Simulated assay, not measured.
Amino acid sequence: MTDAGTYLGQGWDSTATLVDERWVERRPKRAEVEVYLRRELTVMPWLAPLLPLPVPVLRLVSADPFVVRHELVPGGELETLNAVQGKQLGEFLLALHAVAVADAVAHGVGPAPVPLDRFRAEVLPLVPDQAGLLDAVAAAPLDTLVHGDLGPEHVLGRDGVLTGVIDFGDVHVGDAAIDLAWALHSTPPEFADALAATYGVTAELRERSLLWHRIGPWYEVLFGNDNGDPEMAESGLTGIRNRSSWF
Rank of each mutant, 00 (worst) to 15 (best):
M1N: 08
D3Y: 14
W12V: 15
W12L: 14
D13Y: 13
S14H: 15
R22C: 15
W23D: 10
R26S: 06
P28D: 12
R30C: 03
V33G: 03
E40N: 11
E40K: 07
T42D: 09
L47S: 02
L50A: 11
P52K: 12
P54N: 14
V55Q: 03
V55N: 02
P56I: 05
V57K: 07
F66K: 07
R69P: 02
H70R: 04
L72N: 05
G75L: 01
G76S: 12
E77M: 07
A83W: 06
A83G: 06
V84W: 00
G90S: 13
G90H: 07
A100W: 02
V101K: 14
A104Y: 13
H107F: 14
V109I: 15
V109H: 05
G110M: 05
A112W: 10
P115T: 06
D117N: 08
R120T: 08
E122C: 09
V123Y: 07
L126P: 01
L126Q: 15
D129A: 14
A131M: 00
G132P: 02
L134C: 04
D135F: 04
A136G: 07
A138Q: 12
A138G: 15
A140H: 02
P141N: 03
P141K: 04
P141F: 08
L142E: 13
L142T: 14
D143C: 01
G148N: 07
P152I: 06
P152W: 06
E153Q: 12
G160K: 05
V161K: 00
D167Q: 14
G169T: 13
G169N: 10
G169C: 06
D170G: 03
V173C: 05
I178D: 06
I178C: 10
D179Q: 01
A181R: 10
S186C: 14
T187Q: 13
P189S: 12
E190I: 02
E190F: 04
E190K: 02
F191S: 02
A196R: 05
A196T: 10
T198E: 15
T198P: 05
Y199I: 08
G200T: 09
V201L: 02
V201C: 04
T202S: 15
A203P: 09
A203M: 10
E204F: 03
E204D: 15
R206N: 03
R206E: 13
E207W: 13
R208L: 02
S209P: 05
P217E: 01
P217N: 03
V221P: 11
V221K: 08
D226T: 01
N227S: 07
D229Q: 12
P230E: 10
P230M: 09
A233N: 10
S235E: 15
L237I: 01
G239W: 10
I240K: 05
N242M: 11
R243P: 06
R243S: 03
S245G: 00
